[in-house]
Simulated scan of single mutants.
Amino acid sequence: MKIRILSDSHENAERLRASLAGTGSSMDIAVGHATSSEPLGAVNGTVPDIVVLDAFDPADIAALETLTLRFPQIDPIVITGDTSSDFLLRALRAGVREVLPGTPTPEALLGAVARIRVKRGGAPTDGKILALTSCKGGSGATFLATNLAWVLAATHGKRVALIDLNLQFGDAAMYVTDQKPASNLALVCQQIHRLDAAFLTSAMIEVAPGFHLLAAPDDPAHSIDVKAEHVEAILKVARANFDFVVVDVGRSLDAVSLQPFDMADMIFPVVQLTLPFIREAKRLVEVFVSLGYPMSKVGLIVNRHLKNSEISVADLERTVQAKLFKTVPNSYDTVAASVNQGEPIARLAKNSPVTKALREIADSLAAEPEKASRGWLSRLFAH
Rank of each mutant, 00 (worst) to 15 (best):
L273D: 11
E286G: 11
D219T: 11
I278P: 03
D218V: 13
V249L: 07
D225M: 03
A198D: 15
Q191G: 10
R239Q: 07
Q190F: 07
T319K: 15
M204P: 10
N308L: 13
V313M: 05
D262W: 12
L214C: 02
A264M: 06
V249A: 09
Q272N: 15
R194L: 09
I311R: 08
V313A: 07
Q272I: 12
M204W: 11
F211R: 01
D243I: 01
F277K: 11
S257D: 08
P260Q: 05
H212C: 11
S312G: 13
V289G: 09
M295D: 05
A203D: 05
V226Q: 05
S257Q: 09
K323A: 15
K227T: 05
F261C: 03
V246T: 01
L316F: 10
I301K: 07
E232M: 11
S296N: 13
M295V: 06
V287G: 04
A198P: 15
D248A: 08
L253R: 09
I301D: 10
K323Q: 13
P276F: 04
P269D: 02
K282S: 12
S312T: 15
L284V: 10
G250Y: 00
S252P: 13
Q272E: 14
H222R: 15
P209S: 04
S252H: 13
A208C: 03
V313P: 12
H193M: 14
S309C: 12
H230A: 05
F325L: 03
E317N: 13
K297E: 00
H212P: 12
G299N: 02
V246K: 01
P260L: 01
D225G: 01
I311W: 04
N241W: 10
A208Y: 02
M204I: 12
I278E: 06
V285W: 03
V287I: 13
L213D: 00
V249D: 08
V226E: 06
I205T: 09
R239K: 10
M263D: 03
G292V: 05
V207H: 02
A238Y: 02
A233C: 07
N303L: 09
A208M: 01
V247D: 00
R283D: 15
I278H: 02
K297L: 00
R251F: 00
D219S: 10
G292A: 08
E206V: 04
P294H: 00
L316Y: 06
I224V: 13
K282G: 13
F261R: 01
A203F: 02
S309Y: 14
N241V: 06
R304S: 13
M266A: 06
D262H: 14
K326D: 03
A281L: 04
S257F: 07
A216Y: 11
F261Y: 11
E229L: 14
A208W: 02
L300C: 01
A228M: 10
V302Y: 12
E310I: 08
A215I: 03
L306K: 12
V245R: 00
P217T: 04
A240N: 11
V249T: 08
T327A: 10
L195E: 06
R283F: 09
E229I: 14
Y293I: 02
H305T: 07
A233D: 12
V320E: 03
A233K: 08
R194K: 12
T319D: 15
I301W: 11
P269V: 00
R194H: 09
A314W: 10
Q321E: 09
K307T: 15
L284Y: 11
V328P: 04
F288L: 07
I267R: 00
L213K: 00
L291C: 04
H230I: 02
Q272L: 15
P294Q: 01
F288M: 07
S223V: 01
L324K: 06
